[in-house]
């Protein structure tokens, strides 16, 4: 279990130039371990910058990043080991694939960790399963895969490092509904089996509502809200203010409630809503 804590963290884009922008503004945050945490925010709210702080890709200009209470920048030489412990899947990760075969590509991370052949083989097979990729693809060239398969191969490449924390920046961006569903359900399965912390960045409230236990809302480089789904989605006014919205189905439930129908606000997925409405319908028969 690894806990990530951010203390008074600030970061500027284009530091010391006339175009300096404060991308992150004194962020204080604890990412609870062993949960799926969703990081939501409008485009440009600083979420991608924030996740690049978590594994030491970017170095904060002010403040500290603590991994299990240890400042990750204290020993700068050890920053690579932080990157193995906090695995970051970047946006559109399929562009990072480069090896001759999918197997070799997934093995790139473990190889950089200096692991032996046998250990690498075990990890590649395990991560392929977690990412929901069929093992026959391992000997293919990554450039022959479909878009969704490439995405999953890239995610497997990070999972193969067996990170304590898995961070994914918009893992389902640009995929069709079936592809989205496949990515997220595999992530949930990975989370349940490994018990590892997962952080998902997205701006889709529907996906976040469905898969995340804990939500962090960002706006203009600041944390606006943090808490479980019920807490966050019960503040729909505040969400609208920062250009976000509650899931459509939750909105529908609220309207129904106003009409005097006995549904509660804590419904975030179509399945939940269906169940609730059906049970009311059956009662009324």
């Amino acid at each position: 279990m690894a806990e990530i804590k951010l203390e008074n963290l600030s970061y500027f884009h284009g530091k010391d130039t006339p175009y300096e922008i404060k991308a992150l503004d004194t962020i204080n945050l604890t990412i609870p371990s062993g949960m799926i945490t969703g990081l939501i925010g409008h485009t440009g709210s600083g979420k991608s910058t924030l996740v690049q702080m978590l594994n030491g890709i970017l170095r904060p200009h002010e403040g500290r990043v603590l991994l299990d209470g240890q400042d990750i920048w204290e020993k700068q030489k050890n920053i690579r080991s932080v990157r193995f412990r906090v695995g970051l899947v970047m946006q559109y990760p399929e562009y990072q694939l480069f090896e001759e075969t999918v197997y070799k590509d997934i093995a790139f991370g473990p190889k950089n960790m200096g692991l032996g052949e046998e250990e690498i083989r075990v990890r590649v097979e395990e991560s392929v399963r977690f990412a929901g990729l069929s093992p026959e693809l391992l000997q293919k060239s990554p450039f022959d895969l479909s878009g969704g398969e490439k995405r999953r191969a890239a995610i497997a490449g990070i999972i193969a490092m067996r990170p304590d924390v898995l961070v994914l920046d918009e893992p389902a961006a640009g995929l069709d509904p079936r592809g989205r569903e496949a990515i997220f359900s595999n992530l949930v399965k990975y989370h349940e089996e490994s018990g590892n912390t997962v952080v998902i960045v997205s701006h889709s409230m529907e996906d976040m509502a469905r898969y995340c236990d804990n939500l962090i809302v960002m706006n203009e480089g600041k944390i606006v809200m943090q808490g479980d789904r019920d807490y966050v989605f019960s503040r729909s006014n505040q969400l609208t203010e920062v250009g976000l919205d509650i899931p459509q189905v939750t909105k529908l439930m609220l309207i129904l409630k106003e009409q005097g129908i006995d549904v509660d606000g804590g419904i975030y997925t179509v399945d939940q809503a269906l169940e609730r409405i059906l049970s009311i319908y059956r009662k009324s028969l």
């Binding site: 890709i57 970047m90 790139f108």
Partner: peptide
């Protein structure tokens, strides 16, 4: 811009 993105992605996999 693309080079920078790819470099970041490979750094996240421990490239040095």
């Amino acid at each position: 811009e693309e080079t920078e993105k790819i470099m970041t992605a490979q750094k996240a996999r421990g490239a040095d």
